[in-house]
Write a protein that binds this DNA or RNA. Structure first.
Lengths: 358, 358
DNA sequence: ACCCCATGTGAGTCCGGTCTCAATCCTAGC
DNA sequence: GCTAGGATTGAGACCGGACTCACATGGGGT
């Protein structure tokens, strides 16, 4: 064991015992609040501990008890208020049950997620809530499950993995919102997402994210209802940064048959798409209608306010923490899984396409 | 020690040693990469470890080494992209130096911050980066410092505490932006903040946040330059939730002598103030000019785009992590502290007040 | 006085891994 | 073959606190 030069050695139970003139076992009992200890000894120990500013070493405690009273949360993008709100829901429930919450951010990188999961497990957190970066590459999550470690997935499903998952089914809301666009007269509807894929979108291709594949499935279903097919070149993946989003938006809007509506798959996409629309001197919804996933406060402040798909993010965080704590404490899963559904919030960013307005 | 019923016992160094038919000490050396071990033994141990899916117990390691290779970050509001971006800067640097970052969110509550600091210390993180909720109540941070634990403050200063602090001096940028408003003709300029205070603002009162007191100092200085005084009733603190922000905004704009400009002290205040202005049927900047702290992507999408004060948040996160790692590794503080300054980004939300346009 | 029961006490073990140091082994040089 | 030095090995101690169990003490009942 090496010692950190400038660090004072921490006060231990043995130090407190000596100061209180009791045995180490008595001091440990009083400080750890287990076993039996007389009131006289207890008060002397607690006084000595306060005098010495004793703080327990949680590492030692966890090694002994096999519990850390800590929940590890792995989030994909800490800048996205979506995750911020879910985390708040998690933290509120965890606190009530006596658990601390520690977070690790992965920037939606699979390798970072694999590492974050390992770090938290190695630190012996009591359980994990993970928003998977990929619905397909889930072997690391499978190992967690097989090792009997408590695990709940949030927001995204993992294929071939029977783990409690708190997520909205995206297909239905996507179907509903695409129907709304189609009924407004739109036929050329683009969908823009950050999802990384090796090639341009092709109908039927397996996508890495359950979220995105469900959205496309709902869109396709709405098109099928009117005897059409969702055009493949209007689904734009790999929109990884602001520049590529801008370029994609320009291309969609400046080509011979420009799209008349754009669906942004998340808040970051939306910001860049709306900015690109403004840079092109086009107006929402007169020149192009716009709809986005997730309801952020700022979507009400633009002119016009944006039509959004709102998810109950906080409640999902609450449900994820509740489910995880049940697992940790060995209780049975709740008999009825709460159903989460998203809502289409119609504001001002969708109207009939220009050619349809006679 | 209790055992968690459904949890498989984790594989230990001793298990690997037995499988590789070597001593526990040899196995530990090979797995922990310290001391000396022959290549033959090493490869047999590593093969056995892989076969058994051995994972180190970081709790035990940290107890022995006195190091966890972990940085704890205490943030005030995880939903605020300001902290998200700073955290990204911290994480980028930490990763490069071999440190993991774990976060705890406090919702800008002092008691939650005190607890978060304790939790992280008890878990024996190597050092802490804290964005203090209060510049005045800092005893818990002082204890950290006196115990010789590495500590860096981010974004907010702590009074009477000589700890490395990475923050922008708010007074100068506040002076500059208030000059800008005054030169545009504004005299009734409101400042709205979430800061909790026991009473309405009075000039000279001690505020809990260095950030806010510096901003008011800069405003006062700009008013003094033109022989005026910042009116106390135009400084509105305790804007704690959306309703109170809305009420404050209505009152400021509907009173006999309405303010002609509003300065929002952060992004959350700004969202609610702008929304309240819109609800009143007023327009920015024709009816009321608007300026806010921090440059978020959405501030460019409103009509008109908002004039903001931009801080180098990511770079501050980078600097905080660099400073902390220097402390942890016992190196001297950097000879030159990087200077961080905020910028006034003029967009479209400030113009001359209505009466001044002849 | 003796027995029984409840409560408190203290010594020792344990958690999983790191570190130290004496002993042993191996190799090169004389 | 012998010696010296470097490399490897293994036993035991240690990190700080939780847990176990035999023993001691005190009080009440017969």
């Amino acid at each position: 064991m090496s010692s950190n030069g400038s660090r004072r050695r921490e006060i231990t139970v043995a130090d407190v015992a000596k100061a209180a003139q009791v045995s180490k076992a008595q001091a440990a009992r009083a400080l750890g609040n287990y076993g039996a200890v007389s009131e006289d000894v207890r008060s002397r120990v607690l006084a000595a501990a306060e005098e010495l500013s004793y703080r327990p070493n949680e590492l030692a405690r966890s090694m002994n008890t096999g519990k850390s009273n800590t929940i590890g949360v792995v989030v994909g993008d800490i800048e996205n208020p979506h995750f911020g709100l879910a985390t708040r829901g998690i933290t509120d429930i965890a606190k009530k049950s006596g658990y601390n919450v520690i977070l690790i951010n992965t920037d939606e990188e699979l390798t970072a997620e694999i590492e974050a999961v390992q770090v938290l497990l190695d630190k012996r957190v009591d359980g994990l809530i993970v928003a998977p970066a990929s619905s397909v590459e889930t072997k690391h999550l499978q190992h967690v499950h097989e090792a009997g470690r408590p695990l709940v997935l949030l927001d995204r499903k993992a294929e071939r993995l029977d783990v409690e998952t708190i997520a909205v089914s995206m297909a239905d809301i996507s179907y509903e919102s695409t129907r709304y666009l189609l009924e407004s007269g739109h036929r050329r509807i683009a969908f823009v997402s950050t999802l990384k894929a090796g090639s341009a979108y092709r109908a039927g291709m397996v996508l890495d994210s359950s979220q995105i594949s469900e959205r496309l499935e709902g869109m396709q279903r709405a098109f099928t209802d009117i005897g059409l097919t969702l055009p493949e070149d209007q689904v734009r993946l790999n929109a990884g940064d602001a520049d590529s989003i801008r370029n994609i938006t320009r291309e969609l809007l400046l080509r011979p048959e420009p799209v008349t509506a754009i669906v942004a798959s998340d808040g970051l996409i939306a910001l860049s798409v709306v900015e690109a629309i403004q840079e092109l001197g086009l107006s929402i919804p007169d020149d192009v209608s716009f709809l986005m996933y997730d309801d952020f406060s700022w979507t009400r402040l633009t002119s016009p306010p944006l039509t959004v798909i709102a998810q109950p993010v906080y409640e999902m965080g609450v449900a994820a923490a509740s489910a995880l704590i049940r697992q940790i404490e060995g209780r049975k899963p709740a008999p009825d899984r709460p159903e989460f559904s998203a809502r289409l919030v119609r504001r001002g960013s969708v109207s009939a396409p220009r050619a349809a307005r006679v």
